[in-house]
Amino acid sequence: MVSTAPAGYALVTGASSGIGAAIAREYAQRGVPLILTARRVDKLEQLAAELRGKVQVEVIPADLSDPKAPEILAAEIQRRGLPVRILVNNAGYGVPGRYLTKDWPTHAQFLQVMVGAASELTWRLLPAIRASGHGRILNVASFAALVPGADGQTLYAAVKAYLVRFSESLALENLDRGVHVTALCPGFTWSEFHDVTGTREMMSKLPKWAWLETDAVAKAGIDGVERGKVIVVPGRVYRLLRFLAKHLPDSLVLGLMGRNSKKIRKVD
């Protein structure tokens, strides 16, 4: 396939599975060359082999829990001479259980991946993204960022809310340079996420209407950032829930979250 997309690569973090892999596939369908990064090299290579018939794909493994990883990753991109036009900050995971059930190094590593790495990669790559004249930054947040926090979700909702506010400010700062910045806020999505957190059995009890497909989430995010939407909430149900959360009293919504937290989160 000959790419008709503007020149420049899309860097997708956490591209080995789930929403990250779906975003990579969607960009490949649109003729955008890719830089894929994650910890699991075998998964990255499998995805790269799948997509190389459509676009050029570079694989650069990185463990973003290492504070040095963003600088090393950016330096390797520069060494290979790969112009980055699109940055997708997707890498992430969840830490199940209440705040005090985990030691501080576990939380610190989580914050490094979810906040530190996303912020630093953006800082390091933003000059090139701005220079392209039509750059894009897609931060994969969560519907959890848009409603009161749930029991057992202490840092997860907080870091996703950070990504929303980060995206809003970046969008305003870079609008005059042709850069669109979007926070993608999906609800429950079929992926490895709940297997990693050990909540798959619990989550399987949720009704089918609560679940989104990764392909649909990826398409919504990319369509949204192309249109210049700053916040994208995929799915009619979640858009309705967001509307209700914004217009109902905070105390009522917080009470509902408290009563239902144990159905969707490990809280012990």
Rank of each mutant, 00 (worst) to 15 (best):
M1A: 14
M1L: 14
S3Y: 01
T4H: 02
A7R: 09
L11R: 07
L11Y: 08
V12Q: 10
T13G: 13
A21Q: 08
I23Q: 02
E26Y: 04
Q29V: 05
G31M: 09
V32F: 00
P33T: 05
P33D: 01
L34G: 03
L34V: 01
L34N: 02
I35R: 02
R39N: 07
R40W: 01
D42G: 09
L44V: 12
L44I: 15
L47A: 09
L47Q: 09
G53N: 06
G53M: 03
V59H: 02
E71D: 11
A74F: 05
A74S: 14
A75E: 07
E76P: 05
E76R: 07
Q78Y: 04
L82N: 10
V84I: 06
V84Q: 01
A91N: 04
P96I: 04
P96N: 04
R98H: 07
D103G: 11
T106R: 11
T106N: 09
Q112C: 10
G116N: 14
E120P: 04
L121S: 10
L121N: 13
T122C: 12
G133R: 11
H134T: 15
G135T: 13
R136K: 15
L138R: 10
A145K: 10
L146S: 08
P148W: 00
A150Q: 08
G152K: 00
Q153E: 08
Y156I: 05
A157V: 08
A158P: 04
A158L: 01
V159R: 06
L163T: 13
V164H: 03
F166R: 10
F166W: 01
L170T: 13
E173G: 06
R177S: 13
G178Q: 06
G178D: 05
H180M: 03
V181N: 03
C185A: 07
P186D: 02
T189N: 13
W190D: 14
H194P: 15
D195V: 15
M203W: 00
M203P: 09
S204N: 14
L206W: 00
P207M: 10
W209L: 15
A210L: 12
T214I: 04
D215Q: 04
D215S: 08
V217D: 04
A220I: 09
G221P: 10
E226M: 05
K229E: 13
K229Y: 10
V232C: 13
V233P: 12
R236W: 01
Y238V: 14
Y238S: 12
L240S: 10
L241R: 09
L244N: 11
L248Y: 01
S251G: 15
L254R: 15
M257K: 14
M257W: 12
G258N: 08
R259H: 02
R259W: 00
K262S: 14
K263G: 12
K263M: 12
K263C: 07
K266P: 06
